[in-house]
């Protein structure tokens, strides 16, 4: 068994108006990785590539130890996928959906599915089309976790859910990860979700990876410095990641060790790190 749940090596994907450049990163088994980036940064393209839903131009992708070009059925069964749209037939009820899934998956676990449905309070007598967005998402997650998956991939799955539902889902993820061989990859532009649960963060901007590191390392690496505009402009420019000037002052994202004395210094969160990095690019 390899140590990585997902490995990208210099992957290139070319569209007419967009390109994924030389993307390389690893997701170690037993960990949760969050992919952050703007809309259109390439998050979904990356996920489609690892599931072999689209073809890459160059590079190598390994998923659960298998080349993504040749994912066998048994490996596919070990991947649970949740997209932002619910993809079950709209007029079916819980029981009917379970019947279909049972026939699709060789290792379907009815007991687990029923337990998740109960934990999530999914209604038995309602058709999917009458589910709320949160319920649909919980249904997708319940299904993804009920066929002995070792890798859970979620594409913008928690966007648009209320804090209570998101918190419930977070608990389920933590339970899933208690098993050391299990891993989660989750893409989102809601960085606070990822800040809570992820071990690793991969930050994608305009088709390139800006950073892919342990979350704690990223969060300790940078601080936000606030001060007057001229004061901040006098700092060594190479240490400044990004700067935002207002009429009355300025704030800058800066490497922690370069933080000057005598300024207001605050810890940076993922959102600030993302925003300042993107602003720098522009």
């Amino acid at each position: 068994m390899t140590d990585f749940a997902i490995e990208f090596k210099k992957v290139v994907k070319q569209y007419d108006d967009f390109m994924l450049h030389d993307v390389s990163f690893v997701l170690p088994r037993g960990c949760i990785m969050g992919i952050i980036g703007e809309n259109g940064a390439g998050k979904s393209t990356m996920i489609k590539l690892m599931l072999n839903l689209i073809q890459k131009e160059a590079g190598k992708i390994t998923v659960l130890g298998c080349d993504s070009d040749r994912l066998s059925r048994s490996v596919r069964e070990k991947i649970g996928v949740v997209f932002d749209e619910c993809c079950f037939p709209e007029n079916l009820k819980l029981k009917e959906i379970e019947k279909i899934l049972k026939n699709i998956y060789q290792h379907w676990n009815s007991k687990a599915f029923k337990e998740y449905a109960a934990t999530f309070n999914l209604p038995e007598n309602k058709a999917v089309k009458d589910f709320s967005r949160g319920m649909k998402m919980k249904l997708s997650i319940a299904a993804a976790l009920s066929h002995h998956a070792e890798l859970l991939i979620l594409d913008e799955a928690t966007s648009g859910l209320d804090p209570v539902v998101r918190d419930e889902i977070l608990d389920v993820f933590f339970d899933f990860i208690q098993e050391e061989k299990n891993s989660i990859l989750i893409s989102s532009h809601i960085t606070s979700d990822l800040e809570k649960i992820c071990d690793y963060i991969t930050f994608l901007n305009n088709g390139s990876i800006i950073m892919s590191e342990a979350k704690d390392d990223i969060l300790t690496k940078y601080v936000v410095v606030k001060g007057g505009r001229d004061e901040l402009e006098s700092l060594p420019q190479e240490e400044i990641i990004g700067i935002r000037k207002s009429q009355f002052g300025a704030e800058a994202l800066i490497r922690r060790q370069a933080a000057p004395i005598g300024f207001v210094v605050e810890p940076a969160d993922l959102e600030q790190i993302m925003l300042f990095n993107i602003r720098k690019e522009q």
């Binding site: 990860i177 071990d199 690793y200 342990a214 979350k215 704690d216």
Partner: peptide, 14 residues
């Protein structure tokens, strides 16, 4: 380590 991470809502790496 995994239980501690889960209960404290922190990373397993930590």
């Amino acid at each position: 380590m995994r239980l501690l991470a889960k209960e404290q809502r922190i990373s397993v790496i930590t």
